[in-house]
Design a protein around this nucleic acid. Structure first.
Lengths: 209, 209
DNA sequence: CATATGATAGTAATCAGTTACTATCTTTTT
DNA sequence: AAAAAGATAGTAACTGATTACTATCATATG
């Protein structure tokens, strides 16, 4: 017997519910089309009440981006924790990232939408910081894989990092387009397999001849 | 002494100019935020005048998607024409696609934006047809590469196709985010190199042991 | 009672699309 | 070829709907 309507939530919890409502909505509609009225309706509240908990709409988006950054990184860190082999850790991160998106399709849509916006909003700054942190972590893993001899010393690290992130973005984008998140989960390991082979056998520009 | 303002263009040319204006604007702002007023202003026209040439806004977007589909496929076909080796053809397509995006950053933004929209608009249908055509062409190339012995017979064709498209989407997405299209052009061949190595050495699931 | 939370009912700005009128180009008629 | 007529293209001002945001009043909680 869950209450359809939770009344008079404490402020912090109401803010959390708001963020979840936005992530939820972003999975169903274009983030740019999400109005404060739509958010309020989705959480069974009146539109004006939202502004008792957030000073303006931008603050809501900022909170959402913070939620995405925190939860995504937490999930990725957890998946790779305790794995010694860098390539195995990367594989775990890859799968964890894809699984996170499958659970929260609205999250990448908020990210992409925010990052592509022209204006340098606080939300965009958060999104950029997330991306930078992600890329740095990957580069470290690839470098240590080189040191451990798991990857060839002449591997193009930058291209490998770009391709890892790009592969996920591409997978996610295609899943968002088709609307089939489950399929992405099964294709992801097969795609990562090709990526991994590419790293392991990469010769920079002139294969010895 | 170019005229700042071309007056009273014939209808068809005015429609072409409109499409170009939209692609141009989409490179600078979120496609969803492009208003008819913004389009008109960008082409030095009044907002109402647009509706003399298009019945509604959706028709404008439809024309834009048609433009993207036609020009992108033409450029890709041209780049691969006359190349016998499938892998070389794929490499040419890859580079041509990236170059097209560098020339028209608004094009992929329109595509992604349209494909992610919930409503099944005519513009979305065009975008989906473009993607399907693209994927089919790739699958054909990969299959013929197998037959010619350029790629291993046990390569996961579906994953290879998804990864090709995903790699481009990921590259483009990162370029859109950073706003640096020139860099994408230089990174693209290095990224494709890793992709190609992945295909050439891929063993499906159980590397013989 | 005091305060936090919510509802109701607004505001000014902006959106796609329409209307009435005017300018410009093309064709026909003389 | 000159002028009138018709068609096409553009302008300016508007409409109703929707937006983010606010002011005021009501209620629930501790």
């Amino acid at each position: 017997m869950t209450e359809v309507r939770a009344k008079n939530l404490p402020a912090e919890e109401r803010r959390n519910v708001t963020v979840e409502a936005v992530i939820d909505l972003a999975g169903m509609m274009n983030p740019g089309d999400i109005t404060t009225a739509a958010i309020a309706k989705h959480m069974h509240l009146t539109q004006g009440a939202l502004f008792r908990h957030f000073p303006n709409k931008e603050a809501i988006w900022q909170a959402v981006m913070q939620w995405v950054a925190t939860h995504l990184m937490a999930r990725i860190d957890k998946s790779a924790a305790g794995i010694k082999e860098p390539l195995a850790a990367m594989q775990a991160m890859f799968q964890a990232h894809v699984a996170f998106v499958a659970d929260h399709p609205g999250a990448p849509r908020m990210l992409f939408g925010e990052l592509q916006g022209a204006a340098m909003t606080p939300a965009k700054r958060l999104a950029q910081a997330l991306m930078a942190q992600y890329a740095a972590r990957l580069t470290d893993l690839i470098l240590s894989a080189k040191i451990r001899g798991e990857l060839p010393a002449d591997l193009d690290v930058e291209a490998a990092t770009v391709l890892f992130i790009g592969t996920i973005q591409g997978l996610v984008m295609q899943a968002l387009i088709s609307g089939d998140m489950g399929r992405m989960l099964t294709v992801a390991p097969r795609v990562f397999h090709i990526y991994r082979r590419g790293l392991e056998t990469a010769a920079p520009n002139k294969p010895k001849g």
